Amino acid sequence: MKIDVKTVKELADNLEKYKLNEVAVESGGVKLVIKKEKPEKNVEYIQPQQIIPQVFIDGEVQEAQLEEEVEAINCEYITAPMVGTFYISSAPGNPAFVREGTEVTPGETLCIIEAMKLMNEVKAHKACKIKKILVEDGKVVKKGDKLFAIE
Score class of each variant (00 low, 15 high):
Gln50Trp: 06
Glu67Trp: 08
Met116Lys: 06
Lys17Gly: 01
Pro95Ala: 00
Leu134Ala: 05
Gly59Thr: 02
Gly29Asn: 12
Ala12Ile: 09
Glu67Lys: 15
Tyr45Arg: 10
Glu26Thr: 09
Lys36Gly: 09
Asn74His: 12
Lys36Cys: 08
Cys75Leu: 14
Gln47Leu: 11
Pro81Gln: 05
Gln62Trp: 12
Glu121Met: 04
Phe97Tyr: 11
Tyr45Leu: 15
Gly84Glu: 00
Lys117Phe: 05
Leu20Asp: 06
Phe97Trp: 04
His125Glu: 11
Leu147Trp: 08
Asp4Ser: 05
Gly101Ala: 04
Glu40His: 09
Glu26Met: 02
Ala64Phe: 09
Pro53Tyr: 14
Ala24Val: 13
Ser27Trp: 07
Ala149Pro: 05
Gly144Ser: 02
Leu20Arg: 02
Lys126Arg: 12
Asn120Gly: 00
Ile73His: 12
Glu26Trp: 01
Met116Gly: 03
Lys9Thr: 11
Gly144Leu: 04
Lys131Leu: 12
Thr7Ser: 07
Glu68Leu: 14
Gln54Tyr: 14
Lys129Phe: 03
Val30Asp: 12
Thr102Trp: 02
Ile73Ala: 14
Ser90Ile: 07
Lys36Trp: 09
Lys142Cys: 02
Glu71Ile: 06
Ser90Arg: 09
Glu44Ala: 09
Leu66Glu: 15
Ile51Lys: 13
Ala64Tyr: 09
Ala72Thr: 08
Val70Arg: 15
Glu68Arg: 13
Cys128Thr: 13
Arg99Trp: 00
Lys9Ala: 11
Lys146Thr: 01
Glu108Gln: 15
Leu11Cys: 09
Lys38Thr: 13
Ile51Ser: 05
Glu44His: 11
Glu100Met: 08
Glu108Ile: 03
Val33Asn: 09
Lys143Cys: 02
Glu60Lys: 15
Glu44Tyr: 13
Leu20Glu: 06
Lys132Phe: 02
Met116Cys: 06
Glu69Asn: 09
Ala124Leu: 04
Val140Leu: 12
Gln49Val: 10
Glu26Val: 04
Asn94Leu: 09
Glu121Ser: 11
Ala115Cys: 00
Gln50Ile: 13
Val135Arg: 06
Val140Gly: 01
Met82Arg: 00
Ile150Trp: 07
Ala127Arg: 11
Ile34Phe: 04
Thr105Gly: 01
Ala127Gln: 08
Val141Trp: 00
Ile52Trp: 08
Ile34Thr: 03
Gln54Met: 15
Gly144His: 03
Ile3Val: 14
Lys6Gly: 02
Ile34Glu: 04
Gly59Asn: 06
Lys36Ile: 07
Gly28Tyr: 10
Phe97Ala: 00
Val83Lys: 00
Ile52Gly: 01
Leu134Cys: 10
Val55Phe: 14
Lys36Ala: 15
Ala91Asp: 06
Val43Thr: 07
Gly138Met: 07
Gly59Met: 03
Ile46Lys: 14
